[in-house]
Amino acid sequence: MARMRSKKRKVFVKSTVKTPSVDHVTGDKIPKSIVFSRGKLPGPLKQLQKDLRKLMLPHTALNLKEKKRNSLKDFLNIAGPMGVTHFLMLSKTDAAPYLKVARTPQGPTLTYKIREYSLAVDVARSQLHPRCPPDLFKNSPLIVLSGFGTGEQHLKLTTIMFQNIFPAIDINTVKLSLCQRIVLLNYNKETKLIDFRHYSIRLQPVGVSRRIKKLVQSHNVPDLRSLQDVSDFVTKAGYGSESEADDEAATVTLSSDIGRVNRASNKSAVRLQEIGPRMTLELMKIEEGMCSGGIIFSEYGNGDGAKKEANHEEEEMDEED
């Protein structure tokens, strides 16, 4: 009688970026994440998954190869050896798409319903001059949370989870040139919705014309054939006073030089440009463990409504798996 041998399930992970496990300045462990799906995702949500992986760079697996038979246990088995501290899990039910954010290996797990979302490509198409250079993703984004200081326990847990999912920074030692992205989460206590936004950070010197900026930033010799004198390059109408409107509230004095244009001796204006993805999230429940355990918080209360919603979601996931 032939003997059947069961094959072990494997998760194939390939990361394009090798990152350290410990911050060389603070000595703290650097949080790492993996973004994957539970169940089958439609095309737009697959792209959202790719956008989230890019957002989490460099401390994530950009090229994570999943298989349909992979279970949550498979991902937990590789989390320890790879130093993964957080899971971001996308799923889709008949009701709506969901995003789960969990701390490995024992939780807690926060489940969000994705009310609305826009892909990074959609955000870029809506802009006249989209800007997303590849070197933006060499360093982790800063995290800013607004409106979460209401004192409610579930909002405190949300704050702690998102603060710990990105590396902490030391304002005394951080290099300003490395701060090129920012993730903003804004909580609206009236609608109970969270606006999730992702921006690039750009510094521009105050009071300098656009033509001078380009001259300093590039190494190309400008075309002066149509000018009588080199001073015309600076004072010519339409260029000499072409500096962009400077918002005083967004003007800062740098502690060190950044690039060839932004000098510590001059003021610079901070510009934020959205690069996506964009999401509107609603916190549905918080579980003590990894997608299991006691319910700490539920939007439907802690009674039968919460259990019914949880059971419905689990049934949907089992069908997809």
Rank of each mutant, 00 (worst) to 15 (best):
A2Y: 15
R5I: 14
S6N: 10
R9W: 07
S15H: 11
T16K: 08
V17T: 15
K18Y: 09
V22D: 11
P31T: 01
F36T: 12
R38W: 08
G39Y: 04
G39W: 07
G39C: 08
P42L: 04
L48M: 13
L48Y: 11
L48K: 10
Q49D: 10
K50E: 15
L52E: 15
L52Q: 11
L57G: 06
A61F: 08
N63K: 05
K65A: 11
E66D: 10
K67W: 05
S71Y: 04
K73W: 09
F75R: 12
N77R: 15
N77F: 04
A79T: 01
A79R: 02
G80Y: 04
G83D: 10
V84P: 01
F87Y: 14
M89P: 00
S91F: 06
L99A: 10
L99Q: 07
K100P: 00
R103D: 01
T104D: 01
P105V: 04
Q106A: 13
E116Q: 07
S118P: 00
S118W: 09
S118Y: 07
L119F: 13
L119C: 15
A120K: 03
V123M: 02
A124W: 02
S126D: 14
Q127C: 06
L128N: 08
R131N: 12
C132V: 02
P133Q: 08
P134W: 02
F137H: 13
K138S: 14
N139A: 09
P141H: 02
V144D: 13
V144I: 15
G147H: 03
G149L: 10
Q153I: 05
T159L: 01
I160N: 05
M161W: 03
S177M: 09
R181L: 11
L184C: 03
L184Y: 06
N186C: 01
N188E: 09
L193M: 11
F196D: 03
R197H: 06
R197P: 05
I201Q: 12
P205A: 09
P205L: 06
L215M: 09
P222A: 11
P222S: 08
D223I: 00
L224Q: 06
L224C: 05
R225G: 08
R225H: 14
S231R: 00
F233C: 09
V234Y: 05
A237C: 04
G238V: 03
S243P: 05
E244D: 09
D247E: 03
A250D: 14
T251H: 08
T253H: 11
T253K: 14
T253R: 14
R260Q: 08
N262D: 07
R263T: 09
S265W: 03
K267R: 03
L272G: 06
Q273D: 12
L281T: 03
L281Q: 02
K285Y: 08
E287V: 00
M290F: 12
G294I: 10
G294C: 07
E299L: 11
Y300K: 00
G305V: 00
K307N: 07
K308G: 07
A310P: 04
H312C: 01
E313P: 00
E314K: 14
E316D: 14
D318Y: 05
E319W: 08
E320A: 12
D321F: 11
